[in-house]
Design a protein around this nucleic acid. Structure first.
Lengths: 467, 467
DNA sequence: TCATTTGTGACTAAACATTTC
DNA sequence: AGAAATGTTTAGTCACAAATG
């Protein structure tokens, strides 16, 4: 073995051979984890090729494969056939995107919540709910997936988004994320592949990774995911499902065009995939003028789980989302729901039901849509509207910035200047992308005035940092 | 190859060699699934040994291992080293234990709910909740794991069960099952082993299997799990966690004695395991006279996730449970909670909080405890009280019966006579047990009169069937 | 275009652990 | 007590597929 070659062209990672214990692949993976966590190996560093490391350690190269695989499953590295294995740019655990109230001196541009100005109406609905004859029944064990009249109200609510369903194919979950978890658990197994847009909803990515789903990152443009790329990826390996938000992708705010939806549906159909369609932002397209196309559920209902939370259009605190699915998924979805929740909250669902049936929900939705338009107008005042892609009423914007090396550092610098905001790296499904962005939430500031202050501060800070 | 030997001593399963496509292990697993689902292979049938089948099919025997492994993960078969591989007695999908209201002519002895007579008090609490100053805040996006005052109320509530915790180590989940899912997701990975009692909570078993947890069934007696057996199992292979309900095991109703709890704690400590302690039935021990011992959480808090739902003591419809955990689990638990739920329902939690702070919860608990005692008295009228093991106030009883071949058939026969009830096979964590039981829920009948009718009918039916 | 580099997946080989008799 | 039967785990061989230059 030409030992000297290792000295001349040092490998990026040289684990000490003596420290390896059997099982080799496990101790190698542990060492790798340690060195990444300690920062010895920084993001996007290329690791030694399997064969080279194996040669150096005097072991079989598939033993290295196995060690790298474990690290990949833990989100530490990613590998591309023909190119190599690299340290992951998003380190797991750093990027839980959850909403905690920020201190008064910070302006929150991070979580996409919903304008909370309308919640007094919801409290009224809740009061009316409790005066109903059947109020006591909201407190019992039955109807784990929603009471019949609650389902009916959901079906009615979904009509405005173009969904046509019935009680046998509709249930209530404890919010969209919970519905996504139910879909993953019920219809997929660890090891299955799911296609996602190259920037995708971070909470989905985290959940899927945790469950052992192998994410396949598909390239996109300003009209949505590229059908050709999806088709190519499907030809490479069996991809069982796809996660999409065609009405307004989080975080990019891109709307998938009707033509693109049809093309994607054809590819999906052809490769016999399952769609998880998260239609959280459906309501922002309901302003009469524009038509953005129908949900994928209407194009390929036999392979789509459609999930519509009421978080954004009605109220973010109530844990209620509607799930629509074809017959063949029914048992699987319901038993996954039982496994994760036993039952959903009948009380929350009934408050939503009251809001829908009384019309309050529609009023609230209009107010929120108006606020979204106002917020976007403010954004356009401050940032170049021409550079602004995506849905005009989106609750968040996708702001291109010059690439930085360490996205945590940038987020930290922002925080020090009084802004909480998320960098695009948090939404990365696969390898690093050359372009970088900030996802600018328009909904988490305390009011529109604060939003304007925050966006102005953001613009100035970016200028100051030369981004 | 001595082909004739196969003819002389036919294997229990002979997949056609010609039908095998590559990848062999997958097509073999698919064939196995098909033949089990079709009923060609009945429960507890022993499959051919890996080597024998491999020989017959002319493939390497570890390829058969892989096929069997897949089937095991799907819950179709179970394998015991040294003994063989067998068709699973509980076929997945058949046994989702979820509560659906039964027709009027059926008496429900199946789900363990809670006596629902007290829910009007809860509706009152809910109304008071909505009159609070902060009612609007219940509808927003913040406090994903519970609002501070809700956590405080939880801490206060848990004191009566012997739990001493603080806000930094306590969160609210959307019910106990959801809390269990959070614990599994946050602290375990697919492939990890978790020890369970040989008859254990079916919803836990299903969830764990789905997540790829390898369940290790530990033998028990009338005082709880046998510490020696646990220790032995731990020495065999690394067992990362254990699921226990020491205050009243579901389905056996066994209370783990204080001495046994200490012994188990020592074994758990020694093998560095994580405990998931589901204390759903803590309240049935609060009748002053008896002391049943403290939760494991008090013995080994540094390794215990303690979960106490309010379903049984207060109200089963509200999706609220308290989770208590040590510092080192905090981040993991919280991020798993985000992955599964984003947030828990603040409204549900606040109704529970109001019930606790107003004292209503304690009143309700007393009523439910009294009802539990009455129900048990009725049971003792009808079935031999001497044969009755377990907690005297248990919400369900564990009734020994003579073994039957097909438990589904027995359940079906019961249903035809007007009784919905679950057979012990549904709660089996591992291989079949020689003893069989029925889990008799005392809480799902519409009232105590109906319960008496149901239990009488049960006794008579068992006599009629010769069990 | 084609050879090279690099990762993937399926199957094989061998050592090991447990149960049974 | 020890041999045989049987499942488990780890490591290795080999054919193949994708990216690169």
């Amino acid at each position: 073995m030409p030992v000297n070659s290792f000295v001349d062209y040092p490998m990026s990672w040289k684990p000490e051979k003596d420290l390896l214990r059997r099982p080799i692949y496990q101790s190698l993976a542990a060492k790798l984890e340690e060195d990444i966590m300690n920062g010895f190996l920084s993001p996007d560093t290329q690791l030694p090729p399997q064969r080279e490391l194996a040669d150096y350690l005097d072991i079989n190269f598939t033993t290295v494969t196995k060690a790298y695989k474990i690290a990949e499953q833990r989100g530490l590295v990613y590998a591309v056939t023909g190119r190599g294995t690299f340290v992951s740019p998003t380190l797991k655990g750093v990027d839980a995107v959850s909403a905690k109230e920020v201190p008064r001196n910070i302006i929150d541009l991070a979580p996409v919540s919903s304008f909370e100005h309308t919640n007094s109406r919801i409290v009224e609905c809740a009061k009316k709910t409790l005066d109903k004859r059947y109020a006591e029944q909201l407190m019992n064990y039955y109807n784990p997936y929603g009471m019949p009249h609650q389902i009916q109200a959901g079906i009615y609510w979904l009509k405005q988004f173009g969904i046509d369903t019935d009680p046998a194919h509709t249930i209530i979950s404890s919010g969209a994320q919970n519905g996504i978890a139910i879909s993953l658990f019920g219809l997929f197994e660890p090891g299955d592949r799911i296609a996602v847009e190259s920037f995708s909803y971070s909470n989905f990515l985290e959940l899927a990774k945790r469950y052992g789903i192998r994410l396949v990152s598909i390239e996109c443009d300003h009209m949505g995911m590229l059908p050709g790329e999806l088709d190519a990826a499907c030809k490479k390996s069996r991809i069982k499902g796809i996660f999409l938000m065609p009405s307004c992708s989080n975080p990019t705010s891109v709307v998938t065009t009707p033509r693109r939806r049809s093309a994607l549906a054809a590819v999906i159909e052809h490769h016999n995939m399952i769609v998880i369609e998260d239609d959280a932002y459906a309501f922002i397209s309901l302003d009469g003028d524009t038509r953005f196309g129908n949900p994928l559920q209407t194009l390929i209902p036999e392979r789509t789980v459609y999930i519509a939370s009421v978080s954004k259009p009605i109220c973010s605190g109530l844990r209620t989302a509607y799930m629509v699915f074809p017959d063949r998924f029914k048992t699987k979805i319901e038993s996954a729901s039982t496994d994760l929740n036993i039952k959903t909250s009948s009380l929350d669902a009934d408050v939503v039901t009251e809001a829908i049936l009384s019309g309050a929900a529609y009023d609230i939705m209009k107010v929120k849509l108006k606020l979204a338009k106002q917020a976007n107008a403010i954004y356009s005042d401050i940032f170049d509207p021409l550079a602004c892609i995506g849905h005009p009423n989106s609750l968040f914007r996708w702001l291109p910035i010059k690439p930085v090396k360490d996205f945590h550092e940038l987020e930290h610098q922002m925080l020090e200047r009084g802004l909480k905001i998320f960098h695009s790296a948090r939404f990365l499904a696969g390898p690093s992308q050359p372009e970088q962005y900030l996802r600018v939430s328009l909904t988490a500031a305390r009011d529109l005035k604060e939003l304007r202050r925050g966006l102005t501060l953001l613009r100035d800070t970016l200028k100051e940092l030369g981004l």
